[in-house]
Amino acid sequence: MRPFTYERATDARAAVAAASSAGAKFISGGTNLLDLMKLEIERPTHLVDISRLPLKDIEELQDGGLRIGAQAANSDVAADHRVRTRYPVLTLALVAGASGQLRNKASVGGNLLQRTRCPYFYDTAAGCNKREPGSGCSAIGGFNRIHAILGASDACIATHPSDMAVAMTALDAQIELLGADQTLRRVALVDFHRLPGNTPHIETVLRPGEMITAVVLPPPPPGRQLYRKVRDRASYAFALVSVAAIVAAERGTITAARVAFGGVAHKPWRGTEAEAALIGRPASDATFRAAADAAFAQAVGRGHNDFKIELAKRTLYRTLAQATQAQ
C-alpha cells in the first residue's frame, strides 16, 4: 500500500473541502477501497474519513418517501422496518449481497461507488482501460464469463457489482450530492453511473470533491417487489445476473411495472423496454417472454458470457411470473 495522510472529517462541509485537493479520497466503510489500495490499484495520497459524519439517519419524507443517509450501513438499511415493509426489494437486494461482516461496515454511498470485480481490473499485469486508460481491455478476447452484455464498448466490458443499486434503480432513487463549492444537487440514480464509452475510468457524474450525502427514495410504487439473484454459489458471491422487479396486476392485466438488472452492464440497468412490453398486457407467459426478448434485444455476448443473455431472460421471466402469482 502506498503511504497516505489521514484525517477524520468533522463536518460535511469540511470534508468536501478536504477532498478537493489532488490525490485525496473519501473513505467510509473502506471494504472496497482498502482492498484496492492493498493492490495499489487505488493510490490516494490523502484519506478523508467521512464514516463518522452525521449522515446515518433514515428519515421519512413528507411525500411518503424515505431519505437514507449515505453513511448508513448496508445492514442498517436492510433491517430498517420502513424499508422492509415499504421497499422490500431494497432489503432483498441488500441481504443478497456480500456477507454479514461486510454489510455491517459498507456504507450506502460507498456501495454505489464500489468498483468492478473484473479480474483484469484487479490484475495489475494485465491491460485495463479502467485502471490504466489507454492500456487496452484484456477482457475482450479474454476470460469474460462475468462481463457485460448491455451498454459495453470496445474500451471496457466490465460490470457494476452492486445489488443495492439495482433495487434503488427500480425504485427511481435520487442521489443527493454535496459539492466542493458547498452546493447541494440531486441526480437520478439512472443518470449517476456512466456507460464506459471511451472513458471507462470515469464511472460516475461526480465532480472533484463531491460527496454523496443521501439516497432519496420516492414513495413506494404499487405492486409486488422482488429481487432475484443468480450466482455461482448460493451465498456471498457477485451476481451473474440479477433482477429487481416491481409489478402490479389487476384482474390479470399488468397495470404497473418497474424492472432493473444487475450484472449485465457497466451500471445498474433499467429495463425500460421490458416495462413497455409489460404495462397494459395480460400477466401471461407470452407477455413475460416478450418482455424478456425486448429487454435483451440489444444484448451482445463476448464469448464466455454468451450464456448470460439467455440466463437474464429466464431470470426476468421467472421473476415476473412470481411477481404476478395470485395477485
Partner: peptide, 13 residues
C-alpha cells in the same frame, strides 16, 4: 458489538 472484517479497516479509524 457488530461483526466486521478487521483486515478491511484501518486501525486509525
Amino acid at each position: 458489538a457488530r461483526r466486521i472484517n478487521s483486515c478491511l479497516t484501518l486501525a486509525v479509524m
